[in-house]
Amino acid sequence: MLDEFIIRAIIAILLLAINASIAGTFTIFKDMPFLVAGSAHAALAGAAMMIALENYININPLFGAIIFAILVAFSAAKAKQANVAIGIAFAFSMAVAVLFISLIKEQAARVWGLLFGDLLLLTNDDIFLMAIATVLIIIVCLAFNREFLFISFDMEGAMVQGIKANFFNYLLLSIIAVSTVVTMKAVGAILVYAMLIAPAAAANKKAGSIAGVFTMAAFFALFAGFIGLLLSIYFPFSPSAIAALVATSIYFILYKKGS
């Protein structure tokens, strides 16, 4: 009989793979991988702020994390040099995070939990939130797949075609930010970058079609996640770290093969 922690970890890996497939792939198509790192670290600031304000507003810290991550996405969407905007927002939010962590010393471990994440320590609430967000992300991306693809390929062409390209750009980057936040609870703010970006980047190297990239990215993330989980059961390894190592190794192997 499987332990309930393991069951939750398996569900989390499935959800993580869906997010890596959708958000990861569009991040690669938009050529903005740094957005994931920026959103994840901004999310820490949001979570730390909500924990610091817990005595006044009792809301799940992840909502604060989502708001901060979306703010980074918005600054990237608005800026002419998206990576510069993300970098500045990254630095700003890390400063805010450290400031709040210094104010909530006794609760700081909860924020550090988000920094490193743990697949085996997820609660039912965490899984529920991940599932709801993932379903929303699937619905939005299925509904606006054509628009997202068009703006990733040619933003100005999309505008001339009558597509509300700016709106869809904000929407897509926000989706990526939300996806980053909900998955970082499982793998942590540092390793979420590897888990969302590496499978999609590897799939983009190997796949021969758009659909192929989505499918292959999901498969790579699933494979990396399960290897991480499996090894962590038998050895005292962090499952997220192993998963991230496997995911990035897949990229390097395919990169080497392709070069």
Partner: peptide, 19 residues
Amino acid sequence: RNLIGYMPQKDTIARHFPI
């Protein structure tokens, strides 16, 4: 805009994914 067909400069379009 609905009356205009546009061909952008080649450098402005993305070529890094298998569209």
